[in-house]
């Protein structure tokens, strides 16, 4: 079973997890994801591969502690095993021939945008990175990005750090100033990816967005991850997760992503006391508690 090697809190909401998965680390490329199942009764859920190290045989995922499954994951620490980690899934981001790129990340999406920026930059491309956060406390990965891009622009919604405003404000300014790019890569909340696509549309700038629809298997079997792109039904797990941002039906994606929200909220409530019990047992010894 895949063992957790490193665990860090990047800020009050986002956790960094390095997991021992040599087979996945050998194959992973930017833009791909893994499906995880934390324990026997857990659900399968996708997380983007935020980094990978073939030498160490590890992959890194970063996640926001919002849902039941990420809260369960949060209870594990270095040395603990995750029941299932499956991947690498999805198609790698196509970076072929890209000489100048702007990579835009929002919230936890920044973490996900990191490998794209890193690979492009190391391949010799000019890479501008724009990352946006709600407020200063949530800013993360600043140094990692700074070491792996040509220019880093940070924005915060409340102006407490970097530029006051949204990533789209910064992107607009760069484009207005005449910056030329081969591609814009936007990763983050759906409204952000939609807004970025609207900014780049008048410039005819090719915009790649990484979609995060509901998935059960992640291997091209359930159709839960279907999205409408350019009027056609596409499966994000086998044909994506990257799609042309100018063609995606964002409204449909937003609506479909909410289908299970009420049930998930209920499940989270119901599990809260269970989780507390498990935390107690976990701190007492081993993670056998998961097998109850």
């Amino acid at each position: 079973m895949p063992v957790i090697v490193t665990k860090r809190n990047l800020n009050s909401q986002v956790t960094y997890l390095e997991v021992d998965c040599p087979a996945i680390a050998r194959k992973a490329r930017p833009g791909q994801f893994v499906m995880l199942r934390v324990d026997r009764k857990g659900e399968r859920f996708p997380l983007t591969i935020a980094d990978y190290d073939d030498v160490r045989g590890t992959i890194t995922v970063m996640y926001q502690r919002v849902g039941l499954s990420t809260q369960k994951l949060e209870l594990l620490g270095p040395g603990d095993s995750i029941l299932d980690v499956v991947g690498p899934l999805g198609n790698p981001t196509n970076t072929e021939g890209v000489r100048r790129a702007v990579v835009i990340g929002g919230g936890v999406g920044c973490a996900i945008a990191f490998p794209q920026a890193k690979v492009l930059y190391r391949e010799g491309a000019h890479v501008d990175v724009i990352v946006g956060f709600r407020t200063k406390e949530l800013v993360c990965l600043e140094r990692s990005f700074r070491n792996n891009c040509s220019n880093l622009y940070i924005t915060t919604d409340d102006g407490s750090y970097g530029r006051h405003g949204f990533v789209t404000d910064q992107l607009s300014d760069l484009l207005k100033a005449g910056e030329q790019y081969d591609v814009a890569i936007a990763i983050g909340p759906i409204p952000m990816m939609r807004a970025v696509s609207e900014v780049t549309r008048p410039y005819g700038l090719k915009t790649i967005v990484s979609l995060n629809p509901i998935m059960v298997d992640g291997t091209g079997m359930c159709g839960g991850c279907r999205v409408t792109v350019g009027g056609k039904t596409r499966f994000a797990c086998v044909e994506g997760p990257d799609f042309d941002g100018h063609e995606v039906d964002y409204d449909e994606l937003l609506a479909r992503n909410k289908v299970y929200q009420s049930q998930e909220r209920r499940a989270k409530e119901a599990h809260r006391c269970n989780l507390e019990r498990m935390v107690n047992q976990l701190t007492k010894g081993g993670n056998e508690a998961w097998l109850i």
């Binding site: 009764k41 059960v216 409408t228 609506a255 499940a267």
Partner: peptide, 29 residues
């Protein structure tokens, strides 16, 4: 077909059969 509430039989059955969604102690909705 993209509306919430439309799914493939494969998704429905996978949730119920593989992921035990019908059982309250399993997390998959």
């Amino acid at each position: 077909e993209g509306l919430p509430g439309v799914c493939s039989a494969n998704e429905y059955l996978t949730r119920v059969n593989l992921m035990h969604a019908a059982r309250p102690d399993y997390d998959t909705p």
